[in-house]
Amino acid sequence: MERQVEEAARRWLADQGVSQVRDGWVSDEEPDVLLTANQVAHYWAGDVFAEDLHAADQVRLAFGLLDLLDEYWVTCEIRFANESAEAPLPADVLWDGYRQRLEAGREAEAVTYSLWVDWFEDHGTSATAFAEVLGNDIDRVVAERSEAPLRRARRVLECSGPVRWTVKELTYRTAMGLPDLHSAVFHGLLASFHDVYGDLEPAAARALLDQLDLPTNTQHLAELRHVLAAGYENHFRSPGAWDDAVRSCS
């Protein structure tokens, strides 16, 4: 499916006079000017949502551009379109696009970065976004233990720091039922403390941390346990707490 939408995006770019060459991209208007994938994303990705297509097809085409270009800016244009005055994008197609790419074997940095800094840091969208990409089906993911959904779970947990604790706690607890996800839960807890917008409840987070089956030499495990035991909620709201923990645990 991803290959099909990627090829559709390539054809759409060709219709705009943009084609891929050995070292980048070129446009018919300036064939001697080499463009990066990031420039292509900035110049053309937004135009997808001006096409005379059903909104669902616009979203699929935009995700095809994301597959083709692997640039975060494409996800920005998707969100801009979702927040436009026209109407929100079809939620089923939007979130299915995220889930598919979170499950794919290829790198998903643009997708996870988009979740982290756009959807999860915004408390107006984080609950819905987190539920759609993992919270709604974490029970099934843990029960079935299929490779692709587990890959999605790991990626979401690791970038879930900004999601409100009340939204993600149950998902964290459920994920702990599968040892394969323990490392991802740990990184989620770590990000919940260190992220500027990170959110956790120290006592509850410490209780989860103590139940994780992790190597004793896991980097930052002792320091995180120390700050949580001391009741600290966030690195930036408690300057110096982490440094104190590093000194205490060294």
Rank of each mutant, 00 (worst) to 15 (best):
V117H: 11
Q100A: 14
R106W: 09
R60K: 15
T112N: 08
Q16L: 14
P202L: 09
E51I: 09
S183G: 11
E7Q: 15
F236Q: 13
Q20L: 09
V5P: 00
W119R: 05
A45T: 12
V33L: 12
N38T: 14
R155Y: 01
A153V: 09
E51S: 09
L157E: 06
E132C: 12
E103P: 00
N38G: 15
R152Q: 05
R151P: 02
D122S: 12
A131W: 12
K168Q: 06
Y197F: 08
E147P: 00
E169W: 00
A205G: 02
L209P: 00
T218K: 14
A203E: 15
L208N: 13
N234A: 05
R152F: 01
N82V: 04
V163W: 02
L170I: 05
E201S: 06
D28F: 01
S27A: 14
T171S: 13
A85E: 10
V163E: 01
Q4E: 09
E7F: 07
Y98T: 04
E71G: 04
Y197G: 01
L66P: 00
E51K: 13
T125D: 10
W242Q: 11
L94T: 09
H123E: 14
L178Q: 10
H42K: 14
E6I: 09
R11M: 04
V227M: 10
W119Y: 07
T112C: 09
V26A: 03
V33M: 11
Y113W: 10
L35W: 13
G46T: 04
W25L: 08
Y72M: 11
G97I: 02
L115R: 03
R152P: 01
F236V: 10
R60S: 07
R79G: 06
G198D: 02
L65I: 04
Y232T: 07
C76A: 11
S114N: 15
E107L: 06
D244F: 01
V196Y: 13
H42W: 04
N82D: 15
N217W: 09
P202D: 10
N217C: 03
A131M: 05
P215L: 08
R206G: 03
R173Q: 12
Y232G: 02
A241V: 04
Y72H: 13
D52C: 02
R151K: 13
T36H: 10
Q211P: 01
V185I: 11
L157W: 06
E7G: 00
W116G: 05
A191W: 06
L66W: 05
L102Q: 08
V156R: 08
E158C: 12
V18F: 06
E7P: 00
T75S: 10
V117T: 13
D23A: 11
D137L: 01
L212W: 05
L189R: 01
V142I: 05
Q16A: 07
E103Y: 01
P90L: 05
Q20G: 07
R247M: 10
A50P: 00
A229S: 12
P88M: 06
